[in-house]
Design a binder for these strands. Sequence first.
DNA 1: ATTACATTCAATTATTCGCTTGAATGATAT
DNA 2: ATATCATTCAAGCGAATAATTGAATGTAAT
Lengths: 219, 219
Amino acid sequence: MSTSAKIELYEEFSQVAKALGSAHRLDILEHLAQGERGVDALAERVKLSTANTSQHLQLLKRAGLVASRRDGKFVRYRLSGDNVLKLMGILFDVAEQNLAEVDKVLRNYFYQRDDMEPISQIELLERTRDGLAIVLDVRPSDEFTASHLTGAINIPLAELEKRILELDNGREIIAYCRGPYCVLAFEAVAMLRKKGIKARRLEDGLPEWRAAGLPVETG
Amino acid sequence: MSTSAKIELYEEFSQVAKALGSAHRLDILEHLAQGERGVDALAERVKLSTANTSQHLQLLKRAGLVASRRDGKFVRYRLSGDNVLKLMGILFDVAEQNLAEVDKVLRNYFYQRDDMEPISQIELLERTRDGLAIVLDVRPSDEFTASHLTGAINIPLAELEKRILELDNGREIIAYCRGPYCVLAFEAVAMLRKKGIKARRLEDGLPEWRAAGLPVETG
DNA sequence: ATTACATTCAATTATTCGCTTGAATGATAT
DNA sequence: ATATCATTCAAGCGAATAATTGAATGTAAT
């Protein structure tokens, strides 16, 4: 019994790690970090079948990473706590720090430009307080409506090119989206710069902002 | 390319999580957290075949969680950085907080007795400074020799019953071993108490002590 | 009640994983 | 060189996993 208790415990811990061991499930978790979602809505976002998404969600639930509640004919899933986001953050840090592959992808796709360096949450607060910057949320409207940084304006990436005039008033644009690896903000910044507009990216997304206790608006 | 970059990245991240998704590998990592080890020595400790251990180590290496160096005819493996220990710590916290199963195992095996509550690193420092407690390392001698808390004495669990006289001088015993779920310290405390000796457990092990920047002795 | 819709279940298939076995490689010592 | 020891490789097998499909469940609206 002496050694098997630890193994039994590690068996449980490994289930949690296994649940994180799938790109699709990490994607699901990133989306849930934005807020509650029904199975179908989530399935569409992450581009999986409904049945498959449901199965992934059940696995995540068994691992204690997500929780659910019934809401009319929907079943709404959410992250089971703040520590889940923290766990993901450190997982990503470790991967970023120790894996050459990750570094390569980041360099090739995300940081092609040297001047693409993101700004921190504190910098953003300072610059908006001083009226130097506009905060731009480039996520789809429904996610913005559910919750967003206080003071941010919403132009989904898909509409950005059309609506670019709404922005060009000389102030710097700071774009953000779902998290540190969400591509929407990267693309928005690249696009704005091509048009000659000064733009940078917030180094992480809404969930991290909220987790830091910084102000969000909802509804 | 837009969406596939994130998926590509998440694919890499998921490899790291997958590497943690095995009780045996978590066990291996716990042992490596004590210090460098050769494949064979490690295999013996975690009770796996050498070939199998080697394979697990290679997988962990590909995931960036361990590193290795050649040392004569040995290949010594070690954790690739402090963040690995931190990642494991949060993984365990999340599991402990969100999984009823884990809670059950902890209660049934680890915390049967209400008064088995562990003491913190700071408390240990205070009590030893004031001469109120003896720190007891119950790991095997070779692990103790490699590194241990400054001032600790070593009696491996297997020898504790025989050598119990060395301890019984009225001061409280504080036992520790490899980590928060290492069973050696639990059993040591249970045994000492049965013999009427005042004993408690340090809430975590040597690696966490070292990671906190607290003093260790080596050699 | 019946219909519609969201979600889950059950059965299936292709793939990956964990471990074993036995051979191959690499370094050291004689 | 040869022998020895630590480690890794390669092949193989059974178990677990990911995704698809179609049917079943449960809730809400008519």
